[in-house]
Amino acid sequence: MPTSQKPPEKMMFQLNLRRRGISDQAVLRAMEEIPRDQFVAAADRADAWRDSALGIACGQTISQPFVVAYMTEQLQLRRHHRVLEIGTGSGYQAAILSRLCRQVLTIERYRTLADSARARLEKLRCDNVEVMLGDGFDIPAGAGDFDRIIVTAAMEQIPDALAQRLEPEGVLIAPVGPHQGTQTLVRLVRTGGGFERKDLVDVRFVPALPGIAREL
C-alpha cells in the first residue's frame, strides 16, 4: 500500500487560505473550527471545503471561504467588539464572527434562511449570535451602534444611515457596485472628521435588497 496519502480537504482548505494571504491567526483558527459542510446543502457537502461559492435556499449563496476570511480579517476584530452583519444567508459568516467578538447581530430578509441559520448556530453553540428577520436598509433604532459592520450582499452605495451606526473608529466592510456584475469591496472607517474609504478587491455578491421578503 502507498505510504503517503493526499492531505485531507480541511488541510488543503487552510493551506489555500494561507497561500492567498490570510495571515491573522485568530481568523484562521475560526475558519478551521467552524464546519463549513454544516452550512451547505446536503448535495454540496462533498464540495464544502473547496474555495468556491455555493448556492443555498432563496436564490442566495454561501461565499467562497477566501472571501469570508478576507472580509473578516479586514474588520480587525477584537474580543470586546459588537458586530452587525447584513445578510445572514446560511449563517456561516456569523459563525466565524462569533469566535472573534463579543456579540453578533445578523439580519436576514428571508424567513427560511433566518430560521435555518438560527438552528445551525444554536447547534454549534454560537450563543453570542442573534439572528433577526428584518430589513438591512432599516436597522431598528433599538439595536444601537456597532464597532464593526459587515455587509454580505452587494449595495449600489453605502447608505449614510448605515455608516452612522458605526461607533467612533468603527469599521464597515461592504461590496459596493452594480447588482449585476462586479463590485468593489470597500472598507469604511469612522474617524473624528468623518469617514475614510479604501477600495480593496473586486468581488461578486448577490444584490442587497430592501424590505423583508414576502415569500420564503
Rank of each mutant, 00 (worst) to 15 (best):
G170L: 02
L54G: 09
V203S: 07
L100M: 08
F39A: 02
S98H: 00
F66H: 15
W49M: 15
A153F: 00
L133A: 00
P65T: 03
R120L: 05
E33F: 03
A48V: 07
A143P: 03
C126N: 05
V171E: 05
A174I: 01
D202M: 14
F195Y: 15
L97V: 01
I107T: 06
V171N: 09
T61D: 02
M71N: 08
A161W: 01
A57S: 12
D115N: 11
R50M: 13
E122C: 11
T184G: 04
G21Y: 06
R190D: 06
D127R: 13
P2F: 10
A95E: 06
V40I: 01
D147K: 08
V176Y: 04
R197S: 06
M132W: 14
R78Y: 01
T106D: 11
A117E: 13
T184L: 05
A69R: 06
L28T: 10
Q103N: 11
E156A: 07
A94N: 01
V27N: 11
V68N: 00
Q64D: 03
A94D: 04
V68C: 00
D24V: 07
E85C: 08
S116M: 14
M31F: 03
Q14A: 14
M31N: 02
T112G: 02
Q76E: 15
G193K: 15
Q164C: 11
F146N: 08
H179C: 05
R118G: 14
Q74E: 13
T106I: 05
G87H: 06
G89Y: 03
F66Y: 15
